[in-house]
Design a protein around this nucleic acid. Structure first.
Length: 497
DNA sequence: TCTGGGGTCCTAGGACCC
DNA sequence: TCTGGGGTCCTAGGACCC
């Protein structure tokens, strides 16, 4: 019954292919417009219409740090994400520096407002956005604080809605979920679909209920929806119906394809592949030679062929912390930095109730040579002292090396509940009466015991792994260590449990 | 492009086991 | 023991994304 009518006509080579029977899905990609800046506007009325720059590592009045988000007004001055604040200030001086009495001071009309990142506040706003999304779609994947995919196939359809303004008595039956407003439809389709109306409904609800603008892309698959949401930012709504995906993508530069970065773009250009259309049509064996398996995959995406399901965001795979420093070979400075980073990573891991089995560092040498070192433990642990010890140990290799940035990471995470006494039949430690987890370290029964008793530890993985299933691990966000840090349950990588 | 911070996934080589 | 292949794990690095 979801016989999704194809609007853009033309059967496309390759697209659809063998799964012609599969019903077309309706995927929305929701992308907040310069999210941090929009959040700041939400609480500072006077920022409306102003160039706004939100800087990370930025302190008011200083010029260190990097641009996290620039409002569209600020982008007009050339300010971009990831740009050093010092550079942004040259393009767009700070409003506070505009002094009417000083002839050398910048013209206020050519200045902007600079604010430091306030992640807690943005997360609070993001959670209101999530509330809307949860309401609008059963299947969601949150990619970052300001971006999500929704599979709304069962909420709407690719059916063409009544083309007039009023309720046309065309063949379309069923209650349309949202009133398709008459205003400017974007997208290659001439006719409006129910899907478009639904997407508009989602977009308007976000703006109304969370107070921040979003751009939305709608398409029969994830990668096309992603490109669509990007195609008319800010405040865009772009609809790409089944059958017109390849046509929509074809003229775009390869860099617009999700997964094509600077390196891949250059390699593709060397092959004479400049547009998504070129990429779709390119010989896939040649792409594989030049780019590995990713090549043919990118080609399929560019052809509108992407059958990935929208799957809920999982638990994180690693936690890390890094920080830049003035380039230095000084051993004490480096060790202090790594110790602090290690403590922070370990604290975050504990807060999230996760154990880790691999500890690693990163040391960046000028000009920008990234070195990583890692060490795996016999079993999963939660042990801040050990994180520091291993990290410092790995750092020793770089004792003589000048570095500009250092990082610490834990990976091979294990979110099994710490009270999982059943696992090994052990009491998982002595923290029975403890309470607020200030015990030095905790180790899951398995790891602790083996670490203590047998040196080679090699077999441990056999039964440490494979034990926690997805369903079991889902529960982590709810209970344990989250304690007082309420509302933070789905901190940055928000998981929809 | 003189590069900030937090992530993901992929690849490739070596060790080790059978 | 110069010798075949397959599988898994670990480490390091690269590319990409927001």
């Amino acid at each position: 019954m979801t016989g999704g009518r194809t609007v853009g006509g033309e059967t496309l080579p390759g697209a659809g292919g063998e799964d012609a029977d599969a019903p077309d899905r309706v995927v929305c990609h929701v992308d907040m417009d310069c999210f941090y800046a929009s959040c700041e506007r939400l609480r500072h009325d006077d920022l409306d219409g102003e160039p706004v720059v939100v800087g990370m590592g930025y302190e008011p009045g200083e010029s260190i740090g990097a641009v996290a988000t620039a409002s569209y007004e600020a982008r007009e001055f050339g300010v971009e994400s990831a740009m050093p604040i010092s550079e942004a200030l040259e393009l767009l001086p700070r409003r506070a520096d505009a002094d009417p009495d000083d002839p050398d001071a910048p013209d206020p009309a050519e200045t902007g407002r600079y604010l430091p990142v306030d992640l807690d506040f943005y997360e609070a706003v993001a959670s209101e956005v999530k509330d809307v999304l949860r309401d609008c779609a059963d299947t969601r994947r949150e990619v970052s604080i300001d971006e999500a995919y929704l599979d709304v196939t069962d909420r709407t359809a690719w059916t063409v809605a009544g083309s007039g303004g009023g309720d046309g008595d065309d063949g379309v039956d069923g209650a349309d979920p949202a009133d398709p407003p008459p205003s400017g439809a974007a997208g290659p389709a001439e006719a409006r679909t129910l899907a478009e109306g639904y997407a508009r409904h989602v977009k308007e609800r976000i703006e109304r209920e969370a107070g921040v603008p979003a751009s939305v892309g709608v398409a029969p698959n994830m990668s096309a929806a992603k490109v669509a949401s990007d195609a008319d930012k800010p405040d865009g709504l772009v609809v790409v119906p089944p059958g017109s995906v390849a046509e929509f993508l074809a003229p775009l530069p390869t860099a617009d394809v999700h997964g094509v970065g600077p390196v891949t773009e250059r390699k593709l250009a060397e092959l004479g592949v400049e547009t998504a259309g070129d990429l779709a049509a390119a010989d896939r064996d040649r792409l594989a030679e030049a780019l590995g398996e990713r090549g043919p995959e990118l080609s399929r995406r560019a052809a509108g062929d992407d059958d990935r399901e929208v799957t809920p965001t999982g638990l994180p795979k690693s936690l890390s912390r890094e920080s830049a420093l003035p380039t230095t070979p000084d051993e004490a400075t480096k060790r202090e930095t790594v110790s602090a980073l290690a403590a922070d990573v370990a604290r975050r891991a504990r807060e999230r109730g996760c154990l880790y089995r691999t500890i690693g560092i990163k040391a960046v040498e000028p000009p920008y040579d990234v070195n990583t070192r890692a060490k795996s433990l016999p079993g999963p642990v939660d042990d801040p002292d050990l994180v520091e010890e291993v990290a410092l140990d790995l750092l020793a290799e770089f004792d003589e090396t000048p570095v500009r940035k250092l990082g610490v990471r834990v990976s091979k995470l294990d979110f099994a509940e710490t009270d999982q006494a059943t696992l090994g039949g052990f009491d998982a430690g002595e923290d029975a009466g403890g309470g607020s987890g200030d015990t030095g370290d905790r180790t899951r029964g398995a790891g602790a015991r083996t670490t203590a008793t047998d040196g080679d530890g090699g077999k441990l993985t056999d039964w440490v792994d494979g034990e926690p299933t997805a369903e079991e691990t889902d529960r982590d966000a709810t209970g344990d260590d989250a304690e007082r840090r309420t509302g933070d349950g789905q901190a940055s990588l928000g998981d929809w449990s």
